[in-house]
Every structure is written in structure tokens, then in C-alpha cells.
């Protein structure tokens, strides 16, 4: 079967790109767009896929990850969809990709100015947690009235002694709009701040796109006396590559229930095994990777 290049017709792609331009022009602002039908249901990444389809050119190289892994079923299916409908090359190496579509993680390796990260978003509205009405959240964004988001954080500290939001940690973009960074772990939030690459966010079911352009200040919400903190892995290291500065998944390894920790970003882990000095270069660890003894 022959498809139009990257499945969507040119008019649809153009309309998505128009929405994206608007999104880039207003960092963090949710731009409505008309979501097209895809051979995949809502809730499985249609927003991200439409963005990628709208941007793909014949010379692009696409990487798709899900929870950090290239080889999960969803990631593989989406990658194959792009390969089939656009004939583009695909890769698992972050450095090689021009467009990276992701669900739930930002790659460990710093992205460059020539790369675009497309994030899949289930619930684009960060205020939905504290306000069910769309009319009201619209007003709150329009007026920069975000006090209620802080109320949720206050309550979190009251209940747990600290802010415990594990993912989808709300961020303030360019000092203006409040944005959901999608369900990435808060560990990844600092990567958004003053990055060189372009971040695009797509919510297919909710029909919104938004963006964080390069070199944009991104602040994770916090109190003056309870500053933002990423997760700590309490000194644990990846069992495979020995990293102590990446986001680790806890994995049950065998029938006895033994647990081990492994890098969530599998591609990065592979590279670190080959080259332990490989630096992440962004997030809270800008600079060379720490030296590890005995490797």
C-alpha cells in the first residue's frame, strides 16, 4: 500500500505546522489544533505522531523511545509507522537522530541545536489537578493566576514534609505560562531549562500542541524554602553501566524477586558501557560524567 508521505495529507501537515509555529511563538501556551485520524487510538501517542509526521522530511533520522527504551512494543510500532509511511531512516543512537519522539522520558544525552524532541502528552492542562472547568483554567492562564497550583504543592508538603510530585511536575515557561512537561519524571525537568534543542509537546486526544523553544528559561514550581529537587537514587548505580547520574528503573530480575537498577535510557546505557567517560551534558549535571572507581 502506498501512503502519502508520512501518512497525513499536506494540508493537514501544514495546519499542524501552523499550530506549532504559534506554539513556538508563545512558549508554554497550549495551542488548539484539529487532530486527524490515525491508525492508532487516542491515548497511544497520536499527538506526538501528528507533530512528527508534520515535520518529517526525507532526510530526517527518527528515534522513538517509550519509558526511555527504544525496544518497547509501542516505540517499535511507532518507529515502524514512520519508516513505512515516510521511508525515513531510523536510529537508536540519540546523537544521530534529527527528530526524537518520546513518551515519559527525555534522553540522558544532551540534545543539540539541530535536534527536535517531540513529547507525547496525555493531559496537557497542568491546572486540571486543581480546577476542573476549562473556562476557569483558560482565565487562569490568561491572567497568570497560578496561586492554586501552589496550593497543591503546599498540601503536598503538609502531608509528606516535601513536594512529592513524581512526574508531570508543573513548570513556568519564560516566566509566563504554566506548563505540564508531560509525564516525564521530575528528574528530567532541569533538561528543559535553557536547552539548545526545540521541545514540542503533542496531545492528540485533548487536541493541543505546545512548545519550549531553545534557550528558554524553565522553572519548576517550588517554594523559596522548599526549592525544586530531583529524585535521588540514594547512591545506587546502574547494574549494567555503573552510572550514578542517570534515571534508574527498578527491575525485578529473577523469580526470587531480586531487584536491580538499570538506566531507563537504554541507548545511553549501551553507550556508557562502551565509553564510561560519556557525559550527559545537561540537567543538573552539566559537564563531564563523574569518574567512577573500578570500571
Amino acid at each position: 500500500m502506498r501512503y502519502t508521505f508520512a501518512f497525513l495529507d499536506e494540508q493537514s501537515k501544514r495546519s499542524v505546522r501552523r499550530a506549532l509555529l504559534k506554539a513556538v511563538a508563545i512558549p508554554g501556551y497550549q495551542v488548539p489544533f484539529v487532530s486527524r485520524e490515525l491508525p492508532i487510538s487516542y491515548g497511544w501517542g497520536t499527538g506526538g505522531i501528528q507533530i512528527t509526521c508534520a515535520l518529517l522530511g526525507p532526510n530526517d533520522i527518527v528515534k522513538v523511545i517509550d519509558q526511555g527504551a527504544d525496544d518497547s512494543v509501542n516505540a517499535l510500532n511507532i518507529k515502524r509507522f514512520f519508516a513505512r509511511t515516510a521511508g525515513v531512516a531510523t536510529t537508536t543512537l540519540t546523537r544521530e537522530a534529527t527528530i526524537i519522539q518520546t513518551r515519559h522520558r527525555i534522553p540522558e544525552e544532551r540534545l543539540s541545536a539541530s535536534q527536535i524532541l517531540v513529547l507525547q502528552v496525555p493531559y496537557p492542562e497542568p491546572l486540571r489537578l486543581v480546577e476542573p472547568r476549562e473556562t476557569e483554567t483558560s482565565r487562569m492562564h490568561a491572567e497568570g493566576d497560578y496561586g492554586r497550583m501552589y496550593v497543591a504543592l503546599y498540601e503536598d508538603i503538609v502531608r509528606h514534609g516535601e513536594i512529592t510530585l513524581p512526574w508531570d511536575y508543573p513548570t513556568r515557561i519564560n516566566g509566563r505560562y504554566l506548563m505540564s512537561p508531560s509525564p516525564i519524571p521530575r528528574f528530567d525537568n532541569p533538561k528543559l531549562h535553557l536547552a539548545e534543542c526545540l521541545f514540542l509537546f503533542g496531545a492528540g486526544r485533548e487536541k493541543r500542541v505546545y512548545a519550549v523553544p531553545p534557550h528558554t528559561p524553565v522553572e519548576s514550581l517550588a517554594f523559596d524554602d522548599y526549592p525544586f529537587r530531583a529524585e535521588s537514587f540514594h547512591g545506587r548505580r546502574c547494574e549494567r553501566c555503573g552510572s550514578t547520574d542517570t534515571y534508574l528503573d527498578e527491575v525485578i530480575v529473577d523469580a526470587s524477586g531480586r531487584r536491580s537498577h538499570q538506566c531507563s535510557d537504554t541507548a545511553f546505557c549501551l553507550q556508557r558501557r562502551a565509553n564510561p567517560a560519556l557525559s550527559r551534558g545537561w540537567g543538573h549535571n552539566r559537564g563531564p560524567a563523574p569518574r567512577r572507581e573500578g570500571t
Binding site: D145, G147, R148, V151, Y154, I157, F223, D224, D225, Y226
Partner: peptide, 8 residues
């Protein structure tokens, strides 16, 4: 918080 208090 609506009046911009930010110190818990």
C-alpha cells in the same frame, strides 16, 4: 498564595 506568598 494568590497574593504571591512563596515561602512555605
Amino acid at each position: 498564595l494568590a497574593a504571591d506568598w512563596r515561602h512555605y
